[in-house]
């Protein structure tokens, strides 16, 4: 085991991935395709979900908010793991790029968590009869927003330096404890929020005509998340690598990358 984990040529890809310059060039090639895919999926899913999916027997048309609420909530949670894992890689391997990804994941995650809470609120009014409740699900989701904002604040306060990166990574890792709690809150406690519709272990409790556009939206949001994360990371690369030769060449319109 130890032998396997020892330094060997098979780790080269990992260290090449850690090169900001390589990442900037490669992501520049991926972005057009990813953006096109995200745009196509999101437009298809939105038109399908809002105009063509049948309405819900009990909730009527207000249920259509699900086509935004569920995908943004999925990514708000998944994005936290991405941020925490990036922080962990930064701590262990001292990889510069990894810290940049961690920093980039914070605003994207915060924005999506805000959207999860906002779309939940405007869905809550016509269904529950209130915009906001302090039940375990909504409250733990609010804590997630504060965790994201905490990382943003740390990065800002420490000017993204080594100490700030370490502190952010540790806060991100500590905060991962909140994710299973958010997910299981509807099962562990009596909440106003209903249990999960989509589960890995069983078929979704949703008619296939309604589920198909939701699936398109979820995949679309995964692509959108990747695009946003790459864009924020690239901005951070340019900012932190501004003294390097390749960024200077890029700034002067030098060799196309």
């Amino acid at each position: 085991m130890n032998r396997l984990l020892n330094w060997s040529p098979s780790w080269q890809w990992f260290h090449r991935l850690g090169s900001p310059r390589w990442f900037y060039q490669a992501s520049g090639r991926w972005l057009p395709w990813l953006s096109l895919l995200a745009l196509t999926l999101l437009l298809t899913g939105l038109v399908w979900g809002l105009g063509f999916a049948p309405q819900d027997a009990k909730q009527g048309n207000s249920f259509r908010i699900i086509y935004l609420h569920v995908p943004v909530s999925f990514l708000a949670l998944a994005g936290y793991y991405i941020m925490a894992i990036a922080g962990a890689i930064g701590l262990i391997w001292k990889m510069k790029l990894s810290y940049m990804v961690m920093k980039a994941a914070a605003p994207v995650g915060a924005a999506l968590t805000f959207l999860a809470l906002f779309t939940g609120a405007v869905w809550g009014k016509p269904t529950w009869g209130t915009y906001w409740v302090w039940d375990a699900r909504v409250t733990s989701m609010l804590i997630l927003l504060f965790l994201y904002l905490g990382i943003l604040a740390l990065q800002y306060a420490f000017h993204s330096n080594e100490a700030g990166n370490k502190a952010s990574a540790i806060l991100a890792l500590v905060g991962t404890a909140n994710i299973p709690i958010i997910y299981k809150s509807v099962d562990w406690w009596y909440t106003l929020h209903q249990p999960a519709t989509i589960k890995l272990t069983s078929a979704p409790s949703m008619h296939p005509d309604m589920f198909a556009p939701l699936l398109v939206m979820i995949v679309g949001f995964y692509c959108f998340y990747t695009v946003a994360l790459l864009l924020f990371t690239r901005a951070e690369i340019l900012r932190r690598e501004r003294k390097s030769v390749w960024v200077r060449e890029l700034a002067l319109g030098g060799p196309a990358l």
Binding site: N61, I65, L68, A111, V122, W123, A228, L231, F232
Partner: peptide, 26 residues
Amino acid sequence: MDGHGVFVWTAVLVSLVVMLWLIVKP
């Protein structure tokens, strides 16, 4: 949308604005 349009379209509009910001800002 039978009176639910104001909720649905508010959710859509705010989501689109935030998503646009996530692209334009970086």
